[in-house]
């Protein structure tokens, strides 16, 4: 085997060894054909052309792999984000519904037992609408913090908004008196 042919064979052998799985079969195909190439110079050009083709193919395969993985990662990230946003909204909504429920309970009690005069009792309002729901919310936050943190954060968000509202309400109330 001449020096040029030996070089061509070694080049394609190396390419076949290093090429990724899907390109390797093509490198081997070119290597097998090398034996049928008549002139030595032609064999060397055959090997060089083959190497270029495999490099291009491997590059394209690698790019496709990167795009596939990037797209999958993006989809997973979007899914995770959607799930977290859903839990956050559910937590916030749950806390709001709890406060509305407390208001309804207070109203029903006032209507059902007018003698208790709950409508004019600030203590009853404070206890039923603020203390009980906030206590339930904080218990829920503690329970959910490890398992479903976004839901716990949603509850905390609602409690913070509600707390601010109550603080502003009380500040106005005491300023008036």
């Amino acid at each position: 085997m001449s020096l040029l042919r030996g070089l061509a064979t070694r080049l394609l052998c190396g390419v076949a060894r290093l090429a990724p799985e899907r390109s390797r079969v093509w490198a081997l195909a070119m290597l097998r054909e090398l034996e049928f190439v008549e002139s030595d110079w032609e064999a060397l050009w055959w090997a060089l052309g083959g190497t270029t083709a495999i490099l291009k193919h491997s590059g394209r395969e690698w790019m496709a792999w990167c795009f596939r993985h990037a797209r999958r990662w993006e989809e997973q990230a979007m899914e995770q984000m959607g799930k977290k946003a859903g839990l956050l909204a559910a937590g916030a909504l749950g806390a709001v519904l709890l406060v509305i429920g407390a208001f309804c309970l207070l109203y029903l009690t006032a209507v059902s037992f007018p003698g208790l005069d709950i409508e004019h009792s600030e203590g009853a309002h404070f206890f039923v609408v603020l203390v009980i729901p906030v206590a339930i919310c904080l218990a829920a936050v503690l329970w959910l913090w490890r398992k479903k943190r976004p839901a716990a954060l949603g509850i905390l968000l609602s409690v913070a908004v509600f707390g601010t509202h109550v603080a502003v309400h009380f500040a106005n109330h005491f300023n008036r008196h």
């Binding site: 060089l48 052309g49 083959g50 193919h57």
Partner: peptide
Amino acid sequence: KSGTLYPIL
């Protein structure tokens, strides 16, 4: 040449 033919194949 092989560098043109094989990418087509």
